[in-house]
Nucleic acid binder design. Sequence first.
DNA 1: GGGTTCCTTTATCTTTTTATAGACATTTTC
DNA 2: GAAAATGTCTATAAAAAGATAAAGGAACCC
Lengths: 210, 210
Amino acid sequence: MGKNSKEMIINAAISLFNTRGYSGTSIRDIAGIADVNPANIAYYFQNKQGLLEYCFTSFFEQYISEIEKGFSFLEEGAEACLKKIASNLLFFQCKNIHLTRLILREMSLDSQVVREIMSTYYLKEKYLIQTVLEKGEEWGEFRRHSHDYMVIQLKGMLTMPFLNSHYITEVLHVFPHERYFANKYLNEIYAWIEGCLCVIGKENKIPALL
Amino acid sequence: MGKNSKEMIINAAISLFNTRGYSGTSIRDIAGIADVNPANIAYYFQNKQGLLEYCFTSFFEQYISEIEKGFSFLEEGAEACLKKIASNLLFFQCKNIHLTRLILREMSLDSQVVREIMSTYYLKEKYLIQTVLEKGEEWGEFRRHSHDYMVIQLKGMLTMPFLNSHYITEVLHVFPHERYFANKYLNEIYAWIEGCLCVIGKENKIPALL
DNA sequence: GGGTTCCTTTATCTTTTTATAGACATTTTC
DNA sequence: GAAAATGTCTATAAAAAGATAAAGGAACCC
């Protein structure tokens, strides 16, 4: 079992950072859960911050890749492309709910790492989504509207179930980790794209019922 | 200057909890910013957790009160009522962006306090909003739709600019603390209510008397 | 003025936390 | 199988954190 101890550390870290927050978690806690000597964390990740940064880049590399995969469908229309991006991101986040939650939470703090992520990944994300919105207007698919505020709403919908997963499960009894949540919620996002973003004239698909 | 030292502690705590998180902030840090002896924090709030709990209840008492104020407009129609609630909450949160951000962040952790808030304030919130949605359907104002998912979207929109205030300001260059943000963003929320929640060709039948 | 209450300070104890040095073990490579 | 690389452990240094006891002082009430 020597080989996978790095992986054990990562999993334990994601789990604990998720439930207690980064600052609320000690290296000892992580080592305890991972069943590993605390000094090993320093060996693999230099220090606690290194472990967090590993989580960050691991998350955002995949995150931006999901956006790019969706973006490549731009030829097929802006609406289809935006839906593809939204669906990719949603499924990716559903597959990694714990990591997603901890990342989104830590991104709300003031730190060097956060600023770096902003100026790399989020800037790129903004560029890609904005391009889709611009093309959508150009092609007459989308209404003319403030891109910033559309991005706020879209990202709001994509992040809400993960940041507030307690609320979602305990108050609403909706479970983001279950398979059918993603499908159903995706329909809501599609409905928003169609209802609030697309031009009115199109045939308004009423979101599927369940 | 003896009297306001409690207030100084609270302000320092909100500021530091906001930027560094609760666990990332030490009592000494707070005392330093508040220009107060560290032992005074224990005097006023028993311990660090007590200080956090003070922030929580202070926030949620006002929060739920804003919802109730809006809810009292239900007689004037569900749409108008929901808009009133949304607008109250948005303005309240804009007025307290730091407190709002730290509360929303801490609510994403696993803790006793969080569970208590869930089962009191958030349950009440859910009841009130759900009632508005039900009445809206009954009166033919709202489409029939999953209440839970509508609540998710509404709350997503109401919380996004605060939890992601870094993103909003640094990537989108939109400033939630500025006066005109709230007005503009409120219009987006109204557009969502009208576009995604209300019936398409709505003839507003205002509830007679009940 | 004596006493009470409220607030502040000093000083310190205890625990927790991160980090590291160096020994020990295991695996790989030649 | 020896040497090198890789991984793990013990032990501990050093700092930081939370908490508290007890003294000091100011304001107030009678």
